[in-house]
Amino acid sequence: MREALIVIDYTNDFVAPEGKLTCGEPGQNIEGMVTSILEQFHQQEKEIFFAVDVHDENDPYHPETELFPPHNIRGTSGRDQYGQVQTFIEKLGAEWPDHIHWLDKTRYSAFTGTPLELQLQERGITHLHLVGVCTDICILHTAVDAYNRGFTLTIHEDAVQSFNADGHTWALGHFKHCLGANVVTG
């Protein structure tokens, strides 16, 4: 079974104190664990995908325009990864290893409108590890799509977080009880 890590929306706009749609301290508190898991996958040369929300300023057609303030606008530092994760990316420099991939996504799920499924299939990946934010939005929608496509899932409980503590807890239960995901800590 080949594994891949998907780092979902761990951006300044979603995590940093001054982020446009920040989940604040809960998201900041998982920085060390997200970075640790990322480093582990990198050292083992396992596939890593950064699935990063992107929006165009004043897009009247995007469904999130009515739901949330502008965030993760193309070309802004709001789309940079938060903290140590951005430092990890900067250390890679211009020549990223073949096992690390960047995907712009315009919907909650990392599968919708991206080549993620094809890239996973090409590499024979059947098991996905999910980290990032928000547990009950983009992590949830990505997990449901992965489940529906037959992938085995591991959710790293101490490397996902949300705006909403109740939504976070509910989503963790949903991953385990409805998607058969392995929800792990540490």
Rank of each mutant, 00 (worst) to 15 (best):
A159H: 02
P115H: 15
V184G: 11
I155L: 13
E64W: 03
T11M: 10
L130K: 01
W170L: 09
Q121T: 15
C178N: 15
H101V: 14
N29G: 12
V34G: 09
G78S: 07
N29P: 02
Y147M: 11
Q121N: 14
W102K: 06
H168R: 10
C178K: 11
D136Y: 05
D145N: 03
Q43I: 07
Q119S: 12
M1D: 12
I139W: 05
V131R: 00
L118T: 14
D158G: 13
I100G: 04
F14E: 09
H141A: 10
P60M: 12
E18T: 09
Y10N: 06
I155V: 14
S162M: 02
Y10E: 02
Q44C: 03
G24K: 01
T142S: 14
Q81T: 05
I100P: 02
V52N: 05
V85Y: 08
W102T: 07
Q81S: 10
T11K: 03
P69G: 01
C134E: 11
V133D: 07
H168F: 08
G83C: 04
H129A: 11
A171H: 03
L67E: 12
E64R: 08
G113W: 14
H99I: 13
E39K: 02
P70N: 07
D56I: 02
H71L: 02
L116G: 04
V34L: 07
G124W: 01
V184K: 05
P115S: 15
M1W: 00
I73D: 04
K91H: 09
C178S: 14
I37L: 15
F111P: 00
Y147P: 01
S77D: 10
T142G: 06
G124D: 09
H168E: 10
V144L: 12
P115C: 15
V144A: 11
Y108A: 09
V54A: 07
L116Y: 12
S162A: 13
G27Y: 00
E39S: 01
L92E: 11
D53E: 07
G32I: 01
S109K: 01
L92K: 11
M33P: 00
Q121I: 14
D13H: 03
N29T: 05
L140N: 01
S36I: 01
